[in-house]
Design a protein around this nucleic acid. Structure first.
Length: 261
DNA sequence: ATGGTTGGACCCCAA
């Protein structure tokens, strides 16, 4: 089973990119964030025409919004609510739960006292951590993926030193992120295959003339798995070339292959 | 230190 997570930054602006992503990566399950559309206006037909007959959409106008498109039937699970914002969707395929998350970006000022958006971000990560701790077991087969908006490792950003006070890589966020990761002993699918010593990004700002040349990337998109899925994980990759598509999202897709038991 | 760009709604906000 191939599972992809991708922050599309508006699905209605991303048809051409999405078509190419679907045709090249051929995911069985496609988890999207920042669809920026209400449920009624979601492009269900576009995905059906590409073989995704099963969908779960939790949209919102203008901001946020998450969706899961699947070629395989699934069961819709409980969603976490947070200030009426559409940031979580979860499904179950066989005995594997998939949780699609869009963590708040958190604004610019890395101080929860001065910046309510940053306070919300910390609170959101905390509440998700608690939710997993109370509702799930470390022995469950769980995939947590999405735009988690935190680059936890030194080599998840282009300059650890220069980003210590930049929202997405501040010590307080990384601590919250690690607490979430440790809640059920999740491991990082991409770092399972690529050493922590190696630079690895999934996002490059639009505000660069040449994203590839400046290469000031960050790894904000993640796939975390509980230990019981370790033996099933066969492959993980980040598709950097998608950043060069026409009208690209600022995030690129991240994929894992799970060999089912 | 600042500004750079994109998307979606509305005459600016969030990323």
């Amino acid at each position: 089973m191939k599972i992809v997570t991708w922050n599309v930054n508006s699905i209605r602006s991303r048809f051409e990119s999405a078509k190419k992503v679907i045709e090249s990566l051929k995911p069985d399950v496609l988890c999207l964030q920042e669809i920026k559309v209400i449920d009624d206006l979601f492009p269900y037909d576009f995905f059906k025409s590409h073989g995704y007959n099963y969908n779960a959409v939790r949209g919102q106008t203008s901001y946020n919004g998450v969706a899961i498109l699947s070629k395989i039937p699934f069961l819709l699970q409980e969603n976490i609510s947070f200030k009426k914002e559409a940031r979580h969707l979860s499904i179950k395929i066989k005995d594997v739960e998939i949780h699609n998350l869009y963590v708040p970006a958190g604004g610019d000022i890395p101080d929860p006292e001065l910046n309510p958006k940053f306070a919300d971000k910390l609170e959101f990560i905390d509440s998700v951590k608690k939710w997993f701790k109370y509702n799930k077991k470390a022995t469950d087969k769980i995939v947590v993926l999405g735009d988690l908006n935190v680059a936890p490792l030194e080599n998840d950003v282009w300059s650890h030193k220069q980003l210590l006070k930049v929202v997405s890589h501040t010590p307080i966020e990384v601590e919250k992120y690690n607490n979430l990761q440790n809640s059920l002993g999740f491991f990082d699918a991409n770092r399972h295959f690529i050493s922590k010593e190696e630079k690895l990004y999934s996002w490059w700002s639009y505000r660069n003339r040449d994203w590839r040349k400046s290469n000031r990337g960050r790894r904000l998109d993640h796939i975390l798995l509980t230990e019981s899925l370790k033996k099933h994980l066969k492959f993980a990759n980040i598709y950097k070339d998608v950043r060069d598509y026409e009208r690209p999202s600022d995030h690129v897709p991240v994929l894992i292959k799970l060999e089912c038991a």
